[in-house]
Lab assay of single mutants.
Amino acid sequence: MPVRRGHVAPQNTFLDTIIRKFEGQSRKFIIANARVENCAVIYCNDGFCELCGYSRAEVMQRPCTCDFLHGPRTQRRAAAQIAQALLGAEERKVEIAFYRKDGSCFLCLVDVVPVKNEDGAVIMFILNFEVVMEKDMVGSPAHDTNHRGPPTSWLAPGRAKTFRLKLPALLALTARESSVRSGGAGGAGAPGAVVVDVDLTPAAPSSESLALDEVTAMDNHVAGLGPAEERRALVGPGSPPRSAPGQLPSPRAHSLNPDASGSSCSLARTRSRESCASVRRASSADDIEAMRAGVLPPPPRHASTGAMHPLRSGLLNSTSDSDLVRYRTISKIPQITLNFVDLKGDPFLASPTSDREIIAPKIKERTHNVTEKVTQVLSLGADVLPEYKLQAPRIHRWTILHYSPFKAVWDWLILLLVIYTAVFTPYSAAFLLKETEEGPPATECGYACQPLAVVDLIVDIMFIVDILINFRTTYVNANEEVVSHPGRIAVHYFKGWFLIDMVAAIPFDLLI
């Protein structure tokens, strides 16, 4: 008679799926529990143990900040960024110097990925580790590398530091407007667009060049630039800015003055950032001319202004700041037409079709709590990747769950009947059967004279019903998954307890 339990259901295979997918890609990662103190490590794979030199037993239950890997060259700011990422709910990448158990130093890129439950609360953290440099290539500990984003994938490793954006290309926007319009339909740009040429040739750093990471940081200074100062900065030398009595002219307006920039070969870094931020506020060169004239017309309804409409929906549905990093990277690809469009465009503009998908598509409701890094690593669709929660398995109709209350009560009843059979069957065979043979035949009273025979008949009927119930009862397979398919249940029961239950259900007393 089957006594099969499996009270692990309803099970959740999400954690096993993450481990299996990460292991298949030869990654070095740990999984931490966000619900406990210090976000203790609950799993670390073999790749991480080989990377740091510690065994799994030495890593388990330690804080996922990996303070046991810190050393003299470990930056405090990087460690603080990892700790801050564990307090938030967004994906974050941090470069930090770690030390192995043998004392060797290596520069590592740590990717902190939160995993949320159905309520939107962070319950786990996945920390992925990628070695960037070994100890002989690690720089000085005073050099802070965590304020910069990861290198873009479309640049060669040897040319990542030679990417320079020439400031004269930004200063000569109005001069290039006529050349853009003359391109017409034969050019790649839309009317009114501004073409910015980027020099990728390796050259020595000069005062006129600005690194790509500095251009990325310009967006942080746009908020500090007032509207009046932006307007004066875009007017140009024809209309000098008016300053109040006793007030000095704005240095932001002076930063885009061609006369002032041409007199000296070098520009201050602050002026460069502010000038680029001011130019980015204009949607095209037409807006710059309109600002000089004193009238700013409404933005025209053409394809170039609607190019950012799908980007707005993608940004609203993005799951991490990696989408913004990807957008900034692609927006700086050289030799393309940049349409400086305000994100607050007309909502009635139709979304044009684009061959290049900048932001990841909208994630469906079932995966809105899973970050983009987890979705990318697992390579699963929205119909396959579940949320991290207890999910009731989908069972067929008329199927009994093996952990249901009805099955528990039924098993206790069958257990009592088995005990009765084990006690009274030998007793009936030894004593009652002998008395029946010696006594007179009682054929007239039937079952009324033999109450134990009636009980034995009921017990046999219950055993037959138990066999039928076992054909529709779920079970737990070797992978700790609840199986509810009727065919698989029948095959599993035939290979197991079916023969024993059938022999126990045969009414031998009635056959004798």
Rank of each mutant, 00 (worst) to 15 (best):
V384G: 04
A360T: 12
E365I: 04
P205F: 06
I31W: 01
R164Y: 06
R312G: 11
C265I: 12
F29M: 01
S272D: 06
V110R: 01
R271D: 10
S207M: 11
D342M: 01
P386C: 02
L349D: 07
T329K: 06
S26P: 07
P2F: 06
Y327L: 12
D144C: 09
A285P: 14
N117P: 07
N220K: 12
E208L: 06
F68I: 01
S351V: 05
C66D: 01
R326H: 07
H7Y: 06
H368S: 12
I82L: 15
F29D: 01
P245R: 07
A217D: 11
A121D: 11
P245L: 11
A188G: 06
M124C: 05
T65N: 07
A228T: 13
G183F: 06
F14R: 11
G186Q: 15
V374Y: 13
T305A: 14
R100F: 01
R35Y: 12
G187F: 06
A277E: 12
T371S: 06
D346P: 14
L165F: 14
M291T: 10
Q335M: 11
P361S: 14
D111W: 05
K21I: 10
P114Q: 01
G71L: 01
T216D: 06
R148P: 12
K93F: 11
E37C: 05
R56I: 01
V115G: 02
R292Y: 14
L15F: 06
S55K: 13
G53I: 01
P310A: 07
L109G: 15
G187P: 03
T74H: 01
A83D: 10
P245D: 14
A285S: 04
L109S: 15
L385I: 08
K166G: 11
P10K: 09
H254V: 05
K362M: 08
P352L: 13
S304L: 12
T216M: 15
Q335C: 04
R181N: 06
V122K: 15
L127T: 01
E230F: 06
S331W: 05
I288P: 07
Q376N: 14
L165M: 06
E208M: 04
H7N: 03
C276D: 14
I19L: 09
R176L: 06
S304P: 15
I18C: 06
V222E: 13
K161M: 03
S331P: 09
V132A: 15
A80C: 15
G189R: 14
G53E: 01
I336R: 14
T371Q: 07
A223Q: 05
E90H: 14
F163H: 13
M137Q: 15
R35V: 13
A204I: 01
P227H: 01
A260Q: 11
R312F: 05
G226Y: 06
L51T: 05
L343M: 12
P241N: 15
P72N: 03
P297W: 07
L170K: 11
L170R: 11
V3G: 12
L324Y: 13
L170Q: 12
K101Q: 01
V8I: 07
D199L: 01
G71I: 01
T13V: 14
V341G: 15
E177Q: 12
P72C: 02
M133S: 12
R62D: 01
G381V: 08
E90G: 08
L315E: 15
D67S: 09
A169Q: 06
A185L: 08
V36E: 13
